[in-house]
Design a protein around this nucleic acid. Structure first.
Lengths: 236, 236
DNA sequence: CCGTGTCCTTGCGCTGGCGCAAAGACGGCG
DNA sequence: CGCCGTCTTTGCGCCAGCGCAAGGACACGG
C-alpha cells in the first residue's frame, strides 16, 4: 500500500504524456497493492471507493446472479484500467475482481475520478477506449451467443484468450495463466461438461492441448475455421 | 441537412452547460437530418464519417453476421449519442442504424471528434456515460443469455423496453414504437416462433396485449416475477 | 509417500426450444 | 373494396446440450 514510483506510471499509456511534475502529483495520490493468487481486489456490491490500473499479473472479473449462478465477465490484463464504477454511474462495483496469478495493481481514491477525467484528456480518452473495447467485446459475445452453437462459441473464446494473453511457444500458443474448464464454461454460457467434451474432441484432432488449468492452442488456423463455421465441428 | 438551431442543442444534456457563443460554434459544424421510417442513417461497414445525436424519434441498430443472421444491438432513444465509431477506435460503423418512426438527428463530421472530447469535458463525460450505459446493458444481456431460459430473457427485454420507451396508458405501459416478434427474437437470441408462443401464453394470462408490431404491458409486476424466476413460466 | 481436495472425464437419459411447414390475420394501397 | 405483402400463429418432429451421477487423475501439503 505504498506510493508507486514515477517510472511505473510513465510506462502506462494513459500517463505517458504527463511531465514529471504531473506524474509525481498523480503518483502521490496512488497506492500500490501486491495481490496473491486467489486474493480479491474488490467484491461485487462493495462501495466503489477506488479505481485501479493493473501493472502486471492477471485478474478475473466475475458476477454472480441472484440465483447464485456465476459468470466470468472478463480477464484484466497488464495496463488495463479497472474498477471504473464511476464511469458506469454506479456507487458499488458490479463484479468481483480476483487475482489468478501473483499481480500488482495501482489504486486511486474514486474521489479523484472527476478531476482525473477533467484535467488529463489522455486519461479521459483512455477511459473511453477501455470502455469502448469492452463494449465491442461484449457485443461480440452477444452476437456469438445469439447465433452460434456452443462449439463455435468456445472456439472464438479460446482464440480471443490466445490473442489477448497468449505466449508463443514451440508447440503453439499457450494461455499464460491458469484457466479451468469451468472458467471457459462461464465465459461462453455453457457447462463445464460440454467444454470438457469439446476440448477432448479438439485434442484428439490435434488442435489443442489441454490439461488441468492448462491450455495450449496448437493449430489456431484450423480452430478459426471451426469457430467461423467454415469447417464442421468435431463433436458428436 | 441544414444547420440546427442553438436551442435544440441547448436541450441536450451534453451541451447544456455551454454558453451561447460556444453553442453557436458547435451548431455551425452540425447538420440536421430528417429520417423517414425505414430509412438508413448509416450502414454496417460504411466509413464512419459522422457522429450523431438523436433529437426525436427512434432508431434500431442491427448487425448481420458473416453467416447472414441478424441481431438487434440496441434501440436509440431521443437524446442519445450514436455512431461513436471513433470511441471504439473503428474507422467503419459496426452496425446499421435504421429509423423505425419519423425521426430527427444531428450530425457532426468525425474529424471534429477529438476536438469535441478535448474542449468540452461535458461532452467527454457524456460519451463515457453513454458507452458505460451500453456496456452495462450488454453485460445484462450476456448474463441473461448465459443463465436464463428463453421465457425469462424475453421477459427482461420487454420490461427494459417498457422502461426505456414505455408510455403510461390506462391499460398499462405501451411500447411507443412499432416492434415485431422478429425484433424481440433478435434482441434475445431466440426465434420469432418462440417469442410468438411466449407472448401468446402471457396474453392468455392477462400479462400483456400484443398484436401486429404492437406491445402493451398490462401487468409489469407479475411479468417481473416471471423474468426474475420467482414465479414459474407460462409455457408448456 | 500417502491422503485429500480440486479439477476433469465420460456415460446416459431427457427436454427446451429450434427448424420446417402451412395457414391465418391485419393493414395499406391502388 | 379487394388484393397483396408482411407479420403472426400453431402443429410437429428432432436433436444439441443440459443435468445427473460416478469414477479418475493430478497437485499439493503433511
Amino acid at each position: 500500500m505504498t506510493a508507486p514510483d514515477r517510472s511505473i506510471l510513465k510506462s502506462l499509456p494513459m500517463f505517458a504524456q504527463l511531465n514529471d511534475a504531473e506524474l509525481d502529483k498523480v503518483a502521490a495520490r496512488a497506492a500500490s497493492r501486491r495481490l496473491a493468487p486467489g486474493s480479491v481486489v474488490f467484491g461485487q456490491g462493495d462501495a466503489a471507493e477506488h479505481f485501479f490500473v493493473l501493472v502486471h499479473g492477471r485478474l478475473r472479473v466475475t458476477q454472480v446472479t441472484p440465483q447464485g449462478e456465476q459468470i466470468v465477465v472478463r480477464m484484466i490484463n497488464p495496463g488495463d484500467l479497472f474498477g471504473l464504477a464511476k464511469a458506469l454511474r454506479r456507487s458499488t462495483y458490479p463484479g468481483t475482481s480476483t487475482a489468478v496469478v501473483e499481480s500488482l495493481a495501482l489504486s486511486w481514491p474514486m474521489t479523484d475520478w472527476d478531476a482525473m477525467v477533467a484535467h488529463h484528456p489522455a486519461f479521459a480518452a483512455s477511459t473511453i477506449q477501455t470502455i469502448g473495447d469492452r463494449l465491442q467485446d461484449a457485443h461480440s459475445r452477444i452476437r456469438e451467443m445469439s447465433t452460434e452453437v456452443v462449439e463455435r462459441r468456445v472456439g472464438h473464446m479460446v482464440l480471443r484468450l490466445a490473442q489477448q494473453s497468449g505466449k508463443r511457444e514451440a508447440e503453439g500458443i499457450r494461455i499464460d495463466f491458469p484457466i479451468s474448464k469451468q472458467d471457459l464454461a462461464e465465459m461462453t454460457g455453457t457447462t463445464l461438461h460440454t467444454v470438457s467434451r469439446i476440448l477432448m474432441a479438439w485434442e484428439e484432432a490435434g488442435l489443442v492441448d489441454s490439461g488441468r488449468q492448462k491450455l495450449l492452442v496448437k493449430d489456431p488456423h484450423r480452430l478459426l475455421l471451426i469457430a467461423d463455421g467454415l469447417q464442421p465441428g468435431l463433436l458428436g
